[in-house]
Amino acid sequence: MTAIATRTPASLPRNRDIADMHYLASRIMLYLLAFTAVSVIGFPLFWMLICSFKPGGELYAVPPTFLPNEWTLQNYRDLFVQTNFLTYFANSLIVAFGATFLSLVVGGLGAYSLSRFRFFGIAAFSNATLVCYMLPEVLIVLPLYIYVVKLGMADTLISLIIANTAFTLPLALWFMRSYFNAIPISLEESAMIDGCTRLGAMMRVTVPLALPGIISVGVFSFNHAWNEFLFALVFVSSETNKTLPLGLATWIGQDNIYSWGMLLAGAVLVTVPVILFYLLVQRKLVVGLADGGAKGE
């Protein structure tokens, strides 16, 4: 060892220099790549936010200004004063919370059953839920429209809540089953020995333990229903029952009448609840998406 070290004292630092250069070059490349990727991917959302604060004249300027010369909240004010934005927002909240609540309660019970019992047809049922989730919306919407018309439920929010569970319920069943599977049954058994009923043990032991998972399923369901467009487009006809995606979509079609500023301000406000929920469950969401990658969008 010492013999080798003394024989090559001069060449060692030089090698290290070259290695350092290599390292430095690859770090610079890495940062350049990351910076480019983030700028290109992030640009549309940045542009949406920035432009929602531009006054009317600047929104139609050719070529466009980069940062607004004049920052204004006029677009947001117009949105609340001149449109039914608040009605849309309230409708969307009702539909999204309704669908989430329905899928969490119904799906929670179902997932508990799938996780804790062994009975005939369980595998077939699980696969069937997965297939339900992958059916094209446009296939389901035809017959659902027929039912809704025949039952006199056209143009109601309740029809949207129920229709949305066609996709949020399979999601809830799949995810919650895996969360329940991860909780040892021995905990429930001890609770039952201490005098809990089966349902009591479920509510007091299993559900609290699975709560982080249940919350992220709730966020997924909320997000899905919050985004849903096709059912709203087909079922809803009156202005007072429109949800946000439908309301905004009707404005896009008339981009000469409505200003882009108002549309962009609307887009920013539709995104806010989504971002809030994301921050709430950030870690869980990424884990959940990776785990459930095979099971839900």
Binding site: W47, C51, N227, P245, I252, L263, G266, A267, T271
Partner: peptide
């Protein structure tokens, strides 16, 4: 972020 943003928002922004 683009995955979390509602589709209608993505469409609106890109159409602009």
């Amino acid at each position: 972020a683009p995955y979390l943003v509602p589709t209608v928002v993505a469409v609106l922004t890109w159409r602009y």
